[in-house]
Every structure is written in C-alpha cells, then in structure tokens.
Amino acid sequence: MTTVPKIELRDVHKGFGSKKVLDGIDLSVNAGESVVVIGGSGTGKSVMLKSILGLLRPERGSILVDGEEVVGIRGNARERVLRKFGMLFQGSALFDSLKVWENVAFGLINGQGMPRPKAKEVALTKLAEVGLGADVGELNPAELSGGMQKRVALARAIAAEPEIIFFDEPTTGLDPIMGDVINELIVSSVKKLGVTTLSITHDMASARKIADRIAMIFEGKIIWQGPASAIENSGNAYVDQFIHGRAEGPIRMQVRRP
C-alpha cells in the first residue's frame, strides 16, 4: 500500500519578474515526518513555504496537501486547507496592534471561535512552553526583544495545534540554550502530537536535532536529500561545503571583490 505524502511539491517554479527563484522543486513530506530544508541565503526557502501556503502563486508545477491540489484554490476550500497549517514567519510577523497573548490566541479566537477567556488560558500555557511568563502576555510585541518575539511567534504557530507546522528559521536570533529549548519543543510536538513539520534553518545543530530528513536547496532545485544521519557522508560537494561553512567550494557566494 502506498501512503499519500502529507505535502508533495512537483516541479514547482516561481520567479519574480525576470528572476527565477524556484526552478523545479520536487519534495515530499510524509505524515508525522520532520523535514529540514537547508540552503544559502536568498535561494528561495521562504518563497517555497509561502508557495505551499498559497501566499505566493507558483507559475508552474503542482503542490499537493493530503493528495489535494492546492495551487490556485480559493475561498472556503483554501480556508479549509489553511486550517491544517501553522507557520512561524522568519520575521515573526506579530500583530503589533494586539497584546502578546492576543497574538498567541488569535487563531483560536478568530479562526476557531473559542471564547476569549478560554483562549487566553491556552495562550498563557503556550507562552509558558516557550519560556515566557504571564506578565509578558500583557505586553505589546514592540516591547519585546527579537528573541522573545520569535518565541511568541512560535507559541502562536503551535497554539491552534495544527497538523502541519512550518518553521522558518526558528532558532535564529536566540541564544544557544534557548535555541535548544526550542529544538526540544519542536521535537516533542512532532513526537507527542504526531505533527508534520517542514523547517528551514541555517543552524546545523538545530537541523541535526529536529530533522528526520534533510534536503538542500541550491539554485532553485533540491540538489540533495536524505536521512539526517547521512548528512555527514552525503558525498555531495555542495552539501559538504554548506554544513562545514567553508567559503571555498562549488558554491560561489556572490561577493564582488574590487
């Protein structure tokens, strides 16, 4: 019996103007699996996540969620699909007109129609899970440090207990200890709740910890993927250069020297 992947991208193309960003991405994520995508800055990792969510529309290719085509769906069908997802944005994207707890409870109150007092309780529990107290809940997002904002965004992404969670650089901007707490949190939510996750990170320690499978994106394509344990012996020069952070190698950074 073949199982339908939770998410499947087939030959996805997306560009901006004349610039090609995604150039035929093929990737699938199985239910309950945690896949980490690595790749250089500006290679289109965030664009890939936004394409799956329908925030950007690919020019070509097909994206399936639970076997259902999601490219170009609208209205109620789209809302129903989006209910399966939680997303941690790279820049946190907290609503600055709302308090921290209202941010975390937003999906519960406005998406699911949960009464405010109940939603607040849930929000405070989620905030505690990311190491933030109830006093922080009453602040405005602008009053928090960048790392705290990231944690609030994380709490918001998991608050509604979605089936699929996207983490766009969850540990960037956190100190190493808090970074590890967040890694643990991601691992435990996958294990406990059976959530499917697709994460992006530059942080190899984090990638090793949370990934079942790692995929590397380069020039708009997935050039390597395999089990997390195989990353050290990938036999791929691009992957080797990336995970060891060497300036020398097949990946040439676009730095112009005079």
């Binding site: 925030l55 809302e79 989006l82 209910r83 944005f89 999906g107 998406g111 918001r156």
Partner: peptide, 9 residues
C-alpha cells in the same frame, strides 16, 4: 500573510 495563515480573511 500571518493573518491569512491564521484562517482570518
């Protein structure tokens, strides 16, 4: 974008 992913139009 965040609004949309939280099922809010």
């Amino acid at each position: 974008d965040a609004l949309i992913t939280l099922s809010t139009n």
